[in-house]
Design a protein around this nucleic acid. Structure first.
Length: 254
DNA sequence: GGGAGTGCATAGTT
DNA sequence: AAACTATGCACTCC
């Protein structure tokens, strides 16, 4: 059997684990009525992906035509960080981030990683629309999104966990993909390095145009993820990771 | 065989 | 420990 990028332990399920039910429609909610009804008429088929300490749900949330439109709108609307805001400091050295990045969210929120603090810009119409669609299909609410744009297969992101303290550890992270299909790799923390005691098979996924990957706890506790270089990819990909940031005192407030 | 692409470990630093 | 790079080595696939 050929070893391709495949996911392991995939079972088809109707829905991810949802605590709250999908939000109800109010009579006066005309703006997104059509979308909401369409999603209700055609519930998204989810794939459950599980491994040791690993729990994700994957679905094609937007059909191609709609995903194409959203991609185009994102290209128009999203403004990415430049200059110093596009740099990160690791091991005392300053690097240009090998991708473009932007942060949007509710007023006053900020997100810190690797010593860089980024304040949320106000939601754009498209980001707001995608956020609502994500909430409707997952039953989860989000107050922040990190936008990463990979202009081609050389843009990438190194292995890391989303273990920032200001993230609500019980809230899943929803990762939406638009544009070029890219490989997405998970590796268990106890299976890294030469002297790791156990070998745990990495989980390798292809994140498709219009797809939603819901990363449920405790996935982020045990698994690193990365978006590796793919030299044959020549077109851009935009990734949105919706999160819930916990407000703690003044820390996240301007 | 050999180059391209990839996977994976290591080192570096405050 | 580190959302980075660079390097070396092993491996697979044309």
């Amino acid at each position: 059997m050929k070893k391709r990028i495949t996911s392991i332990n995939i079972n088809k399920t109707k829905k991810p684990k949802v605590e709250k039910d999908v939000e109800e429609f109010t009579a006066g909610d005309d703006c997104d009525e059509e979308t909401a009804l369409a999603e209700f008429a055609n519930p998204v088929p989810w794939q459950k992906i599980e491994a040791e300490g690993f729990d994700c749900d994957y679905a094609l949330l937007f059909p191609k035509e709609e995903a194409d439109i959203l991609f185009r709108k994102l290209e128009e609307e999203v403004e990415y960080a430049t200059g110093k805001e596009a740099q990160v400091q690791v091991f005392g050295k300053v690097y240009n981030i090998p991708r473009k990045q932007a942060t949007y969210g509710d007023a006053g929120l900020a997100y810190t990683y690797s010593g860089v603090k980024r304040f949320a810009c106000p939601w754009t119409p498209t980001l707001e629309h995608i956020r609502e669609a994500t909430t409707k299909s997952t039953g989860q609410t989000f107050n922040f999104v990190l936008v990463n744009r990979y202009k081609d297969g050389l843009d990438h992101m190194g292995e890391h966990r989303d273990d920032e303290k200001e993230l609500d550890p019980l809230c899943p992270i929803a990762s939406l993909s638009f544009g070029a299909v890219r490989d997405f790799i998970f590796r268990h923390k106890d299976s890294r390095g030469k002297n790791s005691q156990q070998y745990i098979e990495p989980v390798k996924l292809e994140l498709a145009h219009g797809s939603l990957l819901l990363m449920n706890p405790p996935t982020n506790t045990y698994w690193y993820h990365s978006l590796p270089i793919r030299k044959k990819v020549t077109t851009p990909r935009i990734n949105l990771t919706f999160r819930r940031i916990v407000m703690r005192g003044k820390k996240c407030i301007t």
